[in-house]
Every structure is written in C-alpha cells, then in structure tokens.
Design a protein around this nucleic acid. Structure first.
Lengths: 215, 215
DNA sequence: AGAAGAAGTGAATCATTATTCATTTGTTGT
DNA sequence: ACAACAAATGAATAATGATTCACTTCTTCT
C-alpha cells in the first residue's frame, strides 16, 4: 500500500467542502437560488466544476445543505429568544419580532428561505425549516398553556398559524422588485422605522391569536 | 380579397383556445404544475404542439392563465361568503371555513395554488391571488372596524396574516406524500371529520387574531 | 525515486422541454 | 374552381445547465 488518507488530507478536504458550501451560500444570499449555478459556485470557490461533485452528491443536495445552514442560524436565534425568561406571550413576542427584523435586514436570503420558488428537493428542506420554527413556538405555547398564562389551545396549530402569518406578512416587503431581468433579485431595503411600523400590527394579530386577549 | 375572418371561425378559435386551457387545467389538477408539459396538454386537447403557441404566447402565459382561472373560482367563493349578511367576524369565519374545506377537498390543485414551486412568472400570479384574498378580507375587517364590531387595527396586515395563517396550516395536510417518483403528486385525502378537526383550531387562532377576543 | 492510489479538472455529454417554422390543410369570397 | 389567406401541424431546433469521465496532478508510503 502506498497511499492512506491522512489527517491533514481529511482536513483539507473538509476545508474545500466548506469553502464550496460558503460560496454557494453567498451566491444565494446575493441572487437567490435561481441565480446559483454550479459553475458559478465552483468559480467562486476556485475549484473546477467536477470538484463540487466530489463533495456533494448533486446540485439539489448542495443547495439543500445551504438551506439548512442558513436556516439553522435563524431557527437558533428564535430558539434563544424563546428560551429567555418571561411569560410565554412575552417570549413569543420577542422571538417573532426578532424573526421579522432579521428577515427584513437580509431580505434576499430571507426571501429565498421563505418564498422563492425552488427545486422540490430544496422545498423539502423548507418544509422542515418551517416545522422547526413551529416546533419551537409550539413548545413555548405549550408551556404557557401549562402554567395558565395562555388559554387552552391546539399548540401545534397555533404555532403553524404563527409561522404562516409572519411569513406571509413578510413576503410582500421582501419580494424582489424585479427590475432589470439581468440583475434579477433586487432586495427591498427598508429603514428601521419602516420595519417597526410593519412589525407592530403583525405582532398584534399573532399575539391576539395566541392569547385571545386584546393587545 | 378572398379570406376574411368570419364569426364561425372566431368561435372555433375561441373553442380551441378554451379546450387547451381546460386541458391544461386538468393536467395541473391531476399532477400539479410540474407535470404539465405543453406536449401533454396538446395531446390531451387533440391539437399539435404548435397550435398551443398559436393561442398562447408561451408556456408561462398559458399556465398563468390556468392559475388565474383556478383562482377566480376560489376567490369568488370567498367573496360570496364575505358578502352574506352578518357581523364581520361571522362572515370571516364562514369564508375561512369554506376556503379550508374547499382546499382540502381538491388537494392537488389547492397545493399547486398555495405551495407548489412554480415558474417565477406563475409565481407572480400567486402573489396576486393571495393579495386578492387579502383584499376581500381587508374590506370585511375594515367594515367591522367601522361598525365597531371589531377593534381598531391595520386591516391590511390582519388580512395578510389571515391568508398566511390559513395557507400555512393547510400546507402540511395538502403536501403530496411523494410516494413513487413515477406517480408524483399523490393527493392526501381526508375525511370530513378530520377536516373539521383540523379547521377548528385554525379558525380560533384567526378569529382571535382579528377580534382580540377569546373564542 | 517510484508505485499506488486519491483528488482535481473542465470540456464534452446528456437530458429535458420549450419553442420555431417550413409545409400541409382548411376556409372564404368571387 | 380558384385565388388568397389563415390555421394547424409536428419534426427539428434551441437553450439551458446539470452531470460525467478520461485524464492530470497531488499525496503518501516504501
């Protein structure tokens, strides 16, 4: 025998893989999934097309992983906000607010995650990602019901509704105003003031939906 | 001169156009947009591929029109329900209930309209369609605020949240359980009982969101 | 240094479908 | 019946972009 995979190599491979992933991520956050071609990703990562396929089964798998990566960040932020101390309703409010603020600050990626038409295999990730949010919300709602701070309800459905309501409210503001077809995904930048104005009524609706109380 | 378009011809053309449209519609309601190819549509309509292009600018335009067609029905149903007499909240409830019931009874088309990944130009129709729902809801909410039966609120945002909440809640139940990749879009048939069980908590959330009152 | 094997390369290939267009068929009015 | 024009045809083309693979380069170990 003459060649045996060594630690150094393993690391280098992992680095290349990660570089590709990062570049794919950047492609998406600049132009959405539809502008992210394998060739572009490869160019950007400074590797050949074929190399991408050495590290990822297929385009769909690569971008599914990009989706996961982007998603984890966001879901974790929400999970953190929900883990803070306080009443369930307050925690939900903070989490929802953060979700919306973050989305509006990174509109291209947010739009890609929430609403961009994508390959069905990537769409699968989206369903999971939405379920992940919903599960976190569900847990918090469940806690609120448990401790009596929220009225009895189907926590899972309420959580799903929360996700839907907030996502839908953001679709409009996030939607790319497709200007030149050559520069496709133009983000819609909003001022902090606009963002707050937008968020308040959404929160009102969502919290009323969960609490059954006028806010 | 020897040929002049006659009424008979105009009618025949319109018939062909409509037949194509209908067949495209059926393709979608059986297998979603992704299984609807021009060739299939043409075959089904008993015309040649090229004929489709004599009646429609492009595939996207054909399917955008299919989308519109399918949408109009549904939006009209909602509009009718909202036009019935009664308090705003009750009308909203009836409309939402109907929306959900209809969707769950025609799951493939509903999923295509609500959540299937589609060509961007068809996606544009989807945005309009969601806005159309939202506008109807908005009007009713506005009336409720006006007559004091609903609390003051941003009717547009509330309406958007309603659309999002209900759509999201339906995505799960409507999602094709992709079984054999050869028979792609399997609808998820639900019993009436299941449907009711599913709808109630959605309605509770939505109505609480709008009314701010425990239901 | 050289053998053995792994990773990287990127031009060529493949697959999928939308779209076109030269040709055929049908319709109208004289 | 025929000229003039329109509509229909569907095989051929085009376009896109993912994926492959024969070959080159790099690593490791003796």
């Amino acid at each position: 025998m003459a060649y045996r995979e060594t630690e150094k190599m393993r690391q280098r491979k992992a680095e290349v893989r990660e570089r590709i992933l990062r570049c794919a991520f950047r492609c998406v956050s600049e132009g959405g999934f539809r502008n992210a071609q394998i060739n572009q990703v490869a160019d950007r990562a400074g590797v050949a097309t074929g190399t991408v396929y050495r590290h990822f089964e297929s385009k769909a798998e690569l971008f599914a992983e990009v989706f996961r990566l982007a998603t984890e960040r966001e879901v974790n932020k929400v999970a953190e906000a929900l883990a803070e101390p306080g009443h369930a309703a307050d925690r939900l409010e903070r989490a929802l607010r953060q979700f919306a603020e973050r989305a509006l600050h990174g509109p291209v990626m947010a739009w890609s995650l929430i609403a961009e038409p994508v390959d069905p295999r990537v769409e699968g990730e989206r369903l999971e990602y939405r379920r992940a949010y919903a599960e976190h919300f569900e847990r918090t709602i469940g806690e609120g019901v448990e401790d009596g701070s929220l009225p009895s309800q189907d926590a899972r459905l309420s959580a799903t509704c929360l996700v839907g309501a907030i996502a839908e409210s953001l679709v409009g503001p996030l939607s790319p105003t497709q200007q030149a077809p050559t520069l496709p995904e133009q983000p819609a930048a909003l001022s902090d003031g606009q963002i707050q104005t937008l968020i308040e009524p959404i929160l009102t609706f969502c919290l009323q939906g969960v609490t059954g109380q006028r806010r």
